[in-house]
Amino acid sequence: MKEVCIVEFPSNLGLKEPQPGKEPGVKRLPDWLWKHNLHKAIDPKDILRLDAPKYTNIRDTATTILNANSLVDYAREQAYLINNLLSQNKFPFVLGGDCSILLGAAIALKQKGNYGLLYLDGHTDFMDVSLSETGGVGGMAASIVTGNGHHKLTNILNLSPYIKEENLWCVGNREYDDEYENEIRNSAATYLSLHELRKQGISNSVQSFLSEIENKNLDGFWLHIDADVLNDSIMPCVDSRTPNGLTYEEFNELTSYLFQSPKLSGLEITILDPDLDATGNYTKDFVENISNTFNQFKN
């Protein structure tokens, strides 16, 4: 694997307030993971940080999206940073933040070539803004980066779509609602719900994805890991809890296949909220599992 660089994007711009006057705590995730030794375990060549603009709970009038202008400005800065790392043939190991941090990475990937995206998440995040009760980009990130939605966010630097819709694999959703799922079902993306992932088998599913990356001759792929893809019993410290989810055994099997691929260009971790893990025990387990699996293929 290439030289690993940890990149910290401590953003909560894509989420609503959990209660009036209180910001989402996920912006503290990079520091929380540092405290629980992820950085030490990964042992990167470098650690970079880009702080997010100030959070507000105000919807933009043009887009009806929370923090829209700040998200655009932040995405531009994120893209510049990640583009530089990719140009140096380094591997960005990105720590969010909420799922809106995907915008910056996706823009950088578009600037570099034609990439795929494996979106490993307990939700599709392929929601049209008209269906969103909150206006939070965190619930629309996969849709926005594939060109769906208001041009203010989908066409930053005139690069829409950042990821071609047919190069998106949305994996692990367990919010089983037809209106919600039909958004991704009716797209050109590949959709594997948690049920379908288990039905097809993790190995078969991942190999199909990797084969598609090769057959399309894509320049690589990005891995999005939302902590809420894990079973609620082992990862309850997320903003939108849903029953069921991947066990660590399943999660480690799936990510191990991806970490082995030379086409993996970078990854991001999102949504684990320190405010919801008072003892840190859930975070410790997460750090142990992700770092042990990643380090098997790092060197």
Rank of each mutant, 00 (worst) to 15 (best):
Y282G: 06
L218D: 04
Y191F: 15
T56K: 07
V4C: 11
Q260E: 07
T279D: 10
I271Q: 00
K110W: 10
K45R: 07
N244Y: 07
S291N: 03
V206N: 06
V171K: 13
A75Y: 01
S143G: 15
L276R: 13
L13C: 07
L48A: 04
I65F: 02
G266C: 04
A68F: 09
K54C: 07
S265E: 12
L267H: 02
H39T: 11
I225G: 04
V4A: 12
K16W: 00
I271C: 02
N84Y: 06
I213C: 08
G96W: 00
L66M: 13
E214G: 11
Q88N: 12
N89C: 09
L48K: 14
D60E: 04
D43G: 09
A227N: 10
I65A: 05
E8V: 07
H150Q: 09
Q207A: 13
Y55G: 09
K54Y: 06
L192V: 10
D232A: 12
E288M: 10
L230M: 15
L267P: 02
L267N: 02
D277S: 12
L109V: 07
L109M: 14
E183T: 09
S233I: 06
G220P: 00
E181K: 11
L258I: 14
T270R: 03
S240A: 14
G113V: 08
N299C: 04
W34E: 13
K284D: 09
N182G: 05
V4E: 04
D228Q: 05
P18M: 07
L246V: 05
R241C: 12
T63I: 09
L66W: 14
E183W: 07
A108L: 03
E196I: 04
E212D: 15
P161L: 13
D228C: 11
H195E: 11
I225Q: 13
D73P: 01
D277H: 12
R59M: 05
R49S: 06
F91K: 01
L194W: 05
K2C: 04
L254T: 14
L85A: 04
W222D: 00
E175R: 08
A227G: 00
F93W: 08
Y180E: 00
S265M: 14
G136C: 11
L85F: 00
